[in-house]
């Protein structure tokens, strides 16, 4: 049984067809890469999978269960974790605090007991703090544990974000441009980390990225999107050498960060070919 099954999903914003009949499958412990030019609908697909958008047509199944109409936080509870293109972190808090926040579902006490100061809440707080520190150590971030997120450089934030999403204990990890802002060396290191993480955490991973070498390095299977449709799919080498893929990228070098489908994780998207969906649309 596949972990994630996106079944002929279409989503329209007004007259714009952001996704058309997109099907995608992620198997157990698979790493699936998604490439494609800016505005191709990659992040929109993530928003459909995680529940920020409801598909106009089609279904999203997670471990055989139709989750198309489930709220974001309920899908998160099922084990779908994600990162955001523009870094989804609580900027006013420290890195360790972010790790604690991300363990919301792991924190096993009722919030009211937490407010009352129940003994169990203190024990649990100790436990999730230790777990948070361990995750930071795992990603080599121990030194910045007590630094406020707003004070950290962009590349490091991407790593912190991976730590936070791992803290949510996901079975399916959706990474939106984890390698943005990184050079080739760093991107390669990230690839190693992702492979190691899969081994240790046993999660399936879907990754959007523009670093084609990174995607080829780690992915078992690759989809290439263009204009809201799947242009090509298959083994990394196959997609890489696909003539259509080359054409889609022609004249458009992969651009780092931001872009037409900029996710509103931290701020609303910039102008582009896709309509900027107001944040209020998700409420």
């Amino acid at each position: 049984m596949s972990v994630l099954d996106v079944d002929a999903v279409s989503i329209h914003f007004g007259g714009v067809k952001a996704l058309q009949n997109v099907s995608l499958e992620v198997g157990e412990w698979e790493i699936v890469g998604i490439i494609g030019p800016n505005g191709a609908g990659k992040t929109t697909l993530f928003n459909c999978i995680t529940g920020f958008y409801r598909p106009t047509r089609g279904k999203v199944r997670y471990r055989g269960r139709n989750v198309s109409r489930l709220d974001v936080h309920k899908r998160a509870a099922l084990g779908i974790g994600r990162t955001f293109q523009n870094v989804g972190l609580v900027k006013g808090a420290t890195v360790l605090e972010n790790l604690r926040t991300a363990q919301h579902l792991e924190t096993e006490y009722n919030p009211w007991f937490g407010i009352a100061g129940g003994l169990n809440s203190f024990i649990e707080e100790g436990r999730i703090t230790r777990r948070g520190r361990q995750l930071l150590a795992l990603l080599g971030l121990s030194d910045v544990a007590d630094t406020t997120v707003a004070d950290l450089p962009y590349g490091m934030l991407k790593r912190v974000e991976i730590a936070t999403v791992l803290a949510t204990d996901p079975d399916l990890l959706l990474l939106d441009e984890p390698g943005s802002g990184m050079g080739p060396e760093e991107a390669h290191g990230l690839g190693e980390t992702l492979l190691a993480l899969r081994k240790q955490f046993g999660t399936s991973i879907v990754m959007i990225d523009h670093h084609v070498p990174l995607v080829t390095q780690v992915s078992d299977y690759v989809y290439c999107f263009n204009f809201g449709e799947v242009l090509a799919e298959g083994a990394p080498e196959h997609v890489r050498n696909h003539p259509e893929v080359a054409r889609a990228y022609l004249g458009e070098e992969p651009v780092e960060g931001g872009g037409a489908e900029a996710d509103a994780g931290t701020e609303s998207g910039t102008a582009g070919t896709l309509p900027v969906v107001r944040e209020e649309e998700y409420a």
Binding site: R82, G88, L89, V90, T266
Partner: peptide, 20 residues
């Protein structure tokens, strides 16, 4: 505790909060 952190997350970034 849990509640306060949840509030901070959803004040600063409701989308991220929901994804947690």
């Amino acid at each position: 505790s849990k509640g306060g952190r949840a509030l901070q997350a959803l004040r600063e970034n409701p989308r991220v909060a929901a994804s947690y």
